[in-house]
Amino acid sequence: MQTTIDSQKKLLSKLQPLIALFVLCMVIGLLSDKFFTVSNFWNVLRQISVNICISTGMTLVVLMAGIDLSVGSVLALSGAVTAGLYKSGIEFPTQNLFVGFTLLGGILAGIVVGGLLGFFNGVAITRFKVPPFVATLAMLTVARGLTMLWTQGFPISGLGKDFAFLGTGWFLGVPVPVWISALVVVLAILLSNKTKIGRYIYAIGGNENAARLSGININRVKVIVYTLAGVLAAVGGLMVTSRLDSAQPNAGTGYELDSIAAVVIGGTSLSGGKGSIGGTVLGAIIIGVLNNGLVLLNVSPFWQQVVKGLVILIAVVIDKANTKNH
């Protein structure tokens, strides 16, 4: 009897974000006749794909009670590296050597750069015991600086139709970025629920001491997860660069906040151990729909920020109230 009530309560608190999303959609739909249209539907999904990609990595990090503030800068550098290499290759004047890149080569290079930066985050946090907040804050600055150096502060534009497919193309009636983020989400759900490393992520966030004493290689798990977060930020960078047909040196500024917001609204605890990828996807959708709705309703961008901030606050307050009852 007691357990059925408990599980009903649990189910209800799990459904809360879904109910919130539903109510939000209804309200916006009532106020604007442009909201419930097919084109707007794909529009919203395409817009949030980048955030979903980044937030998936962020969720894994936050589940371990970590944080990654560098995702926005990593996104910018990866995008710029891909764009630069694909467009004009790289020259080594001393060796009198020029290396050109195919599209795939450029993409891989961008992803490797994202992974490397994430790997450095992981090493700083595990090997040198720098708190994640500080390590990734440093990376935020370093990667942004490297982006400026690489681009000389100018956008790298004119990347061609093939590359544009990633961000603007359609496949089987669905925008390509939506396919990419859906694939990322499915893989991440598999990773977090069905694999050893996923379980270790939850264990580390739930009680790092107990996880270590259980013989789990904590440092390895952490390095892998931060590397993954870097890779996913790079994937986001590819989509952004492709959609704009241009790698902007200041791309991705503030994206870490949107992604942390998605994670938190999705019910993942910043102290680790509790949460899910699915929740984060919902969180990202809620933020996306809110953004879209506020634009459709002609709310000034300044008020949009205020509303977004309040939504995050309310989401956390509700979440706290829920956990208190358990």
Binding site: R199, Y202, A203, N209, A210, A211, I216
Partner: peptide
């Protein structure tokens, strides 16, 4: 402090050291 992972189930705590 060092033994249990409080937010995990009994089953997940039992399997933690021998998942592989």
């Amino acid at each position: 402090r060092d033994g249990i992972v409080p937010g995990m189930t009994v089953s997940q705590n039992i399997s933690l050291a021998s998942l592989g």
